[in-house]
Amino acid sequence: MSSPEVATPTAEAAPMPVTPAVVESAPKKDKPRSLWTDAWYELRRKPLFVISAIMITIFVLMAAFPSLFSSVDPQAADLNRSLTPPDFGSWFQFGKQGQFGFDLQGKDIYARTIYGARASIVVGLSAVLGNMLLGGTFGILSGYLGGWTDTLLARFGDIFLGLPFVLGALVILSTFAPVQDSPSALRITSLVIMTFIALGWPSFARIMRAAVLSTKQLDYVHAAQALGARPGRVIFRHVLPNAIAPMVVVGTITLGGYIGAEATLSFLGVGLREPVVSWGIMIGDGRNYMETAPYIMAFPAAFLAIAVLSFVMLGDAVRDALDPKLR
């Protein structure tokens, strides 16, 4: 997406329901402008989007290249430094340690907080992508085919939807990875992701189904069918591109929710656990030292809160951009 000038966005997006003439007019510019490009213009002008996007970029960088932010090994424990308070003097000095202090085992909290981003982003992103794929596919099938497929998928999804999220996750995780076990990082991470997908897909399927149902009623879908288009073409060219927006929005907001949920489960001891570094685990570690060493919990908790908020804000901004009518 290059950046052609923003001078005249289409009148269509303007909140002017009572004056269709403004919409009627042909635009002056010859730049082809798809609805996605329009959404992008819209987004770039929103402070909410810019701030959350910057925050998220930083978190993603942390997750991908934690060594950019800290040269310290998050697992290196030195009991001599146990429960050392933060050294504010060493802030903004790369290579130093102890900016955020040291935990009980003398591990560097700053380094661990940085490395903790990876678990959150990986779990959140994979769970949401998995949900979109699985829920989206089922949603399209239900919505487009209707009839028995729809009824069966809907009832099947309702079973999962009926389970309260935390309870469901507790049950699944404590069955496959009991609290006393210490599974490998890969195993426990994928288990958590799969739990989220198992419990989350029905909501995604519902959203997709609703969007497909309303999209497939639209005239251009009938027009394609009247031309003799096969179902595959109708779905991928006409239905999906126009029905995917609600799921993208919900996905972004849910991503924030999943990062929080991952921390919750890790805190409870059934989610991620050592050797994975995660904000939830750190918060859990810190809970017994709330009074003597509040910094153990405070820093990861702050990062967690900012990350969740960033994604929720991004979701809001994306929704506004994709659907001006909701404003």
Binding site: T19, A21, V22, E24, S25, K28
Partner: peptide, 8 residues
């Protein structure tokens, strides 16, 4: 032609 665009 078309009804005018009220912006212009």
């Amino acid at each position: 032609g078309l009804p005018p665009n009220l912006l212009r």
